[in-house]
C-alpha cells in the first residue's frame, strides 16, 4: 500500500495534471481502493459460505433469485462479515499512519515533528502516539469481538 500511496502521490499530478488541493484525497483513494478490494473479498466469501442447502430450501419455496439473496442468503452472510469488517477497519486505522509520509498532518506527523525538536523524548512521544492509536482501536476491537459472537450464532454453514 505504501508503494501505491507514493505512486498516486507522484503520478496523479503528473499524469492528469490535476492538483487535488490537498493530499487528503490521495490518502483516501489509496487506502479506500486497497481496503475496498479486501472487503469485496470478504463479502464474496461470506455469501459463498452460506450453506448450499439454504439456497435449495429457498428455491423449494419458489423464491426468485433476488428474494433468495435478500431474504435468505444476505442476512446470514452479513453476520459472517461482521468480525472481518471489524478486523479490516483496525487494519485501515493502522494504514492511515502512512499518510504522514505524504505530508498529511496526522498524529504520527506531529509526533515526528515533536521528536525532531526533543530527540531524547522520543520514547515518550512514540509511546504516546502508539497509545493514541490503541485507544482509537479499542472500540473497534470490542466491535469485532461482539461481531464474532453474533456471527457464531444463527448461521447455517458447511
Amino acid at each position: 500500500m505504501i508503494v501505491q500511496l507514493f505512486w498516486l502521490y507522484y503520478a496523479i499530478p503528473m499524469l492528469f495534471g490535476i492538483n487535488l488541493g490537498s493530499n487528503w484525497w490521495i490518502g483516501v483513494i489509496a487506502i479506500g481502493l486497497n481496503y475496498g478490494a479486501y472487503l469485496s473479498e470478504v463479502v464474496r466469501g461470506s455469501i459463498l459460505s452460506v450453506a448450499k442447502g439454504q439456497t435449495e430450501a429457498a428455491t423449494a419455496l419458489n423464491m426468485s433469485s433476488f428474494q433468495r439473496m435478500r431474504l435468505v442468503i444476505f442476512p446470514q452472510a452479513v453476520r459472517m462479515m461482521l468480525p472481518e469488517f471489524g478486523n479490516y477497519t483496525i487494519q485501515m486505522l493502522k494504514g492511515t499512519s502512512l499518510v504522514s509520509l505524504i505530508g498529511l498532518t496526522d498524529v504520527l506527523y506531529y509526533g515526528d515533528i515533536m521528536r525532531s525538536t526533543n530527540l531524547d523524548q522520543a520514547p515518550l512521544i512514540y509511546l504516546l502516539v502508539l497509545v493514541m492509536y490503541f485507544i482509537l482501536a479499542l472500540p473497534l476491537i470490542w466491535l469485532t469481538r461482539k461481531g464474532e459472537s453474533i456471527s457464531k450464532k444463527g448461521v447455517a454453514s458447511g
Binding site: A57, L61, S65, V155, A156
Partner: peptide
Amino acid sequence: EKHLRNIRGDIGMVFQHFNLFPH
C-alpha cells in the same frame, strides 16, 4: 427461471438436513 417459477409453485420439498433459515 420465470418458467421454472411458474411450475415450481405447486411443489414443496422437505430436506434431509432440514435447511431451516437459522436467522
